[in-house]
Simulated assay, not measured.
Amino acid sequence: MSEVSTKDEAKTVIKGRSVSGRAWKNRNQKRASSLIKTSFNGQTKTWEERQQEKLARKEMLEMQKELQEERRQSKITKKERRLENEKRRAENEFKNAQKFTKALNINKLPSTMKAMSKKQLRQIKKTRLNTKTGVVEYVPAFSK
């Protein structure tokens, strides 16, 4: 009878060990019920703790989305402001060039140009149609 009791004890295997006793051999864990469940210091988190973590994670994701949206909006506003400034600068340059063209007498242009300084020559503009916007703009006369 002593032999039978030792066989029964041998069959009751500690969870996490193989039947042969080899600790390094992995158990076959196909079913969820047979999985070895480990916990943090023998304690599992309560329902409230898990809900709090879930809520904190959700708030963090919302804050990230808000920050990304703020960055996107700031980029858009900067781009709009830059485009407005460029447009205003081009309009002012166009107006300035128009005033300058009115002052030039086309009949005496060759002699006038010979008498001009370099700075004055740089101010001379010619008209060109911008292919992207379809607007007539003044461009430096000696540029490519």
Rank of each mutant, 00 (worst) to 15 (best):
K79E: 12
K79H: 10
R17S: 02
Q120A: 08
A56N: 09
M60Y: 15
K102Y: 13
R57K: 05
R81F: 06
S111I: 03
L83H: 13
V13L: 03
V135L: 03
K15T: 06
A141G: 00
K87W: 15
K132F: 05
E70N: 11
K15N: 06
Q29V: 08
E53L: 09
S74P: 00
K58M: 03
V4S: 11
K95P: 00
K37L: 11
Q51L: 10
K119C: 03
K15F: 02
K65F: 02
Q68C: 13
K15I: 04
S34C: 10
F100P: 04
R128L: 08
L104M: 04
L55W: 03
T6V: 05
Q68Y: 13
K30R: 11
W24F: 11
S74N: 07
A90I: 01
R50H: 02
K45L: 09
R81S: 12
K30I: 14
A115G: 10
R57A: 05
R71I: 13
A10L: 10
L129H: 04
R72H: 14
K65W: 00
K7H: 05
Q43T: 08
P110L: 02
E66G: 05
G21E: 01
S5W: 15
S34T: 10
K114T: 01
K30H: 12
I124P: 00
R27W: 13
I36C: 03
I14G: 06
F94C: 13
V135S: 07
R82F: 00
Q120M: 03
G134F: 02
E137V: 13
T127K: 11
F94G: 12
R27M: 14
R89H: 14
E49N: 07
M60N: 02
I106C: 02
K25W: 12
K54W: 01
K65R: 05
R128F: 01
A97K: 02
F94I: 06
A103G: 14
A141R: 02
N92G: 10
R31G: 09
G16K: 14
M1C: 02
L61E: 12
N26W: 01
G42F: 13
F100M: 09
K99H: 13
M1I: 01
T38Y: 15
R17G: 01
F142S: 07
R57S: 03
Q64L: 15
